[in-house]
Simulated scan of single mutants.
Amino acid sequence: MARAAKAVIDLTALKHNYLLAKELAPGRKAVAIIKANAYGHGAVEAAEYLSDVADAFGVACIEEALQLAENGIKQPVVLLEGFFTADELEFVDKYRMMTAVHSEWQLEALEQHAFSQPLPVLVKFDSGMHRLGFDAEGFAKAVERLQKMDHISDVIAMTHFACADELECEYTQTQMANFHAACDRFGLQHCMANSAVTLHWPEAHGDWVRPGIMLYGASPLDQQTENAARLKPVMTLSSEIIAIRELPAGEPVGYGRRFTSEQPTRVGVVAMGYADGYPRHAIDGTPVAVNGKMTRLIGKVSMDMMTLDLTDQPEAKIGDPVELWGEQVDVNQVAACSDTISYTLFTGITSRVPRIYKK
């Protein structure tokens, strides 16, 4: 490969982060969330490497679940949004998937389908996210209907928190209270802990935790914590310097002349742009590392290239390595400088950036 842009995926770090989730929630089962191609890291590769430790895998849709099944993954796969059409239940049954249930029509489809074996389901309660799920009355009726179905083996109560990443927000406590008020009388297992809850809210771990973004080494929390500091970055996005320019003071760099040099400036051009998935709206000053030394983005990111300030690195040369995020450059800092979140950056890496798996 001539172009140096690449994403190195450290699978040992991925496993470390999954086992950290298990350690933080002792005795619980953990669904490794690998929807959206494992947040851009490679779902099949992630599942294969975690297959000796993972209790289950979580995906968004039947297509993602079938990709795992067709590649030999044997762990249970959870359809986090449930099935979208009744004919998907054929595959749910065949591969013994676990499906979420959040709507009346799904209950009707489950009642009508002829299953070959008992099926575990997660019935979703809307505790305050107001996205998917039954209200309190609908939830009670749904649980009662599911418990009457001979082909339903286990009914697990599920919910999702809106603000668990905000450590001082009281709404998470409100949602927890709503959830327990609705489902505790049924004696169901609980599944409610996303990455933020797994890291910081042990009282909401329930019976199943659902680590997602934390698997990939990025904390979802709005402040650093001891547990979050133990995460290891999984993806290192990198490239190389392909050209160097020496500019006098007063010269613009890049589209729109957003950056203008205030002093003689050494500019490095890097083979990485928004067509690779690097955020176009990253501001001047976004952190970047060249040869392991921190520097900054200057000028607008273009489709295939970006420009860095090498003024303090006179030794830097064409071909030198550039880390855009990874072990040295915190992906959350890049996200903050781009008015987005790490989830968007990871899932936005395009297919022209090769993934290289490190075990």
Rank of each mutant, 00 (worst) to 15 (best):
T265D: 09
T265S: 15
T265F: 08
R266W: 11
R266F: 12
V267R: 10
V267P: 09
V267S: 13
G268T: 09
G268H: 06
G268D: 09
G268L: 07
G268N: 13
V269K: 04
V269R: 02
V269G: 03
V269Q: 05
V269W: 01
V269N: 03
V270G: 05
V270M: 05
V270D: 02
A271I: 02
A271H: 10
M272R: 00
M272E: 01
G273V: 01
G273D: 00
G273L: 00
Y274K: 01
Y274Q: 03
Y274W: 12
A275N: 13
G277K: 01
Y278A: 04
Y278R: 01
Y278S: 03
Y278T: 03
P279D: 01
R280E: 09
R280V: 09
H281N: 13
A282G: 12
A282W: 01
A282V: 00
A282M: 00
A282I: 00
I283W: 00
I283E: 01
I283T: 08
D284K: 06
D284I: 07
D284P: 06
D284V: 07
G285E: 04
G285L: 05
G285Y: 03
T286C: 11
T286E: 01
T286S: 08
P287K: 02
V288P: 02
A289W: 03
A289Q: 04
A289Y: 12
A289V: 06
A289D: 07
V290N: 10
V290P: 11
N291E: 09
G292Q: 03
K293C: 08
M294L: 14
T295V: 09
T295G: 10
R296P: 00
R296K: 14
R296S: 14
L297E: 04
L297N: 07
I298C: 11
I298V: 15
I298N: 10
I298P: 11
G299M: 10
K300A: 15
K300E: 14
K300L: 13
V301T: 09
V301I: 11
S302C: 06
S302P: 04
S302Q: 14
S302R: 04
S302Y: 02
M303G: 13
M305G: 01
M305V: 13
M305Q: 10
M305D: 02
M306A: 12
T307Q: 13
T307A: 15
T307F: 08
T307L: 07
L308V: 15
L308N: 11
D309W: 08
L310E: 11
L310K: 12
L310P: 13
L310Q: 12
T311R: 10
T311P: 08
D312L: 10
D312Y: 03
D312F: 04
D312H: 13
D312K: 15
D312I: 05
D312T: 14
Q313P: 06
P314D: 06
P314S: 07
P314Y: 06
E315T: 14
E315Q: 15
E315W: 08
E315P: 10
E315N: 12
E315I: 05
A316V: 12
A316N: 14
A316G: 13
K317H: 14
K317M: 11
K317R: 15
K317A: 15
I318D: 05
I318R: 12
G319H: 07
G319K: 06
G319Y: 04
D320A: 14
D320R: 10
P321F: 05
P321C: 09
P321Q: 09
